[in-house]
């Protein structure tokens, strides 16, 4: 298996993990009965943060040249498969789609556990993840994946340089950035500072139709733990609407002093000054 060979020779196999999420700009609602997001009429799109991961991968491919490849990897319900064409149109070479009814209801743990096994099957030198998923926003998957894959996990990278087998990254921290080095096989997650995702060209869009999207099912993974809703380590007990904020008071300020007075009065009333 390629996964177990740490020597990287000329060609680097990059796999980008891409989540498929409900349209980021759509108004979101929860169905009180199923406690699930109402997806009806809502388009499924590539997680916007993963477009940055794809961009990062394509940049590395361009800088390395040779036989370097970019494979898209996604775990999602069967109906969403064709959404991956967009990633292929951006310039990825092929895709692997992990889909199975038994994966439904997976939590962070189950997602990372199943994906890790799938990624091992696919083989890689470098896995690139987005920083977080727009729908779940836990940001926990990349770290957990690195752990299950048993490879170094460079998270929140804004710059990734590959030289031979080695990686040098600049990663964002809460107060600045770090420069960190290591070797492949490895996982990195990227931030938006990696560079704006490119648009698919017309040629890219046409070409994407002919690219391969292979599928993997649960049975192909040979997992030794239950996943999906049954195996999940968390369960949702209740879903409530947020406390309603009273409608904002909207005040036109005649001038600076008048506007300031309105605010100051509220601060006093709330004992904030």
């Amino acid at each position: 298996m390629r996964f177990s060979i740490p020597e990287v020779s000329g060609s680097v196999k990059i796999v980008v993990t891409v989540k498929l999420v409900p349209d980021t700009n759509a108004e979101k609602k929860i169905d009180p009965a199923s406690k699930r997001l109402v997806r009806a009429g809502m388009e499924t799109v590539l997680n916007p943060y993963d477009e940055y991961a794809i961009e990062g991968a394509l940049k590395i491919k361009e800088s390395l040249g040779g036989d370097t490849t970019v494979t898209i990897f996604s775990m999602a319900p069967a109906a969403s498969k064709e959404v991956l064409r967009k990633a292929l149109a951006m310039g990825a070479d092929d895709a692997v789609f992990l889909t199975d009814a038994g994966l439904e209801g997976s939590d962070v743990w189950g997602t990372a556990f199943a994906m890790a096994q799938g990624l091992k099957k696919v083989g890689f030198d470098l896995v690139i993840c987005g920083g977080l998923a727009d729908d779940g926003s836990t940001g926990g998957v990349p770290g957990a994946l690195a752990e299950y894959l048993g490879v170094p996990g460079f998270t929140n990278c804004r710059r990734v340089d590959v030289t031979g087998n080695t990686l040098k990254v600049q990663r964002e921290t809460d107060s600045g950035y770090q420069v960190v080095t290591g070797a492949m096989p490895a996982l990195v997650s990227v931030t938006m500072a990696i560079g704006e995702p490119r648009y698919a060209s017309l040629k890219g869009i046409m070409g994407a139709k002919k690219k391969t999207i292979a599928t993997l099912a649960l049975a192909d993974l040979g997992l030794d733990h239950a996943v999906g809703g049954d195996g999940a380590k968390t369960e949702v007990a209740t879903i409530a609407a947020p406390p309603v904020r009273e409608k904002a008071r909207i005040v036109e300020a005649a001038d600076g002093a008048a506007g300031a007075k309105v605010i100051f009065d509220l601060l006093k009333e709330k004992k904030l000054v």
Binding site: E246, A248, R249, A253, G256, A257, G259, A260, I263, V273
Partner: peptide
């Protein structure tokens, strides 16, 4: 932002903020 604020003051921040700073300083 009006959809999730308690108060929206419609006006120029460059005029309002310095006046507000004065009021807060005076109160202290």
């Amino acid at each position: 932002i009006a959809e999730f604020s308690d108060l929206v003051v419609v006006g120029d921040l460059f005029q309002i903020v310095p006046e507000l700073t004065k009021l807060v300083k005076e109160s202290k």
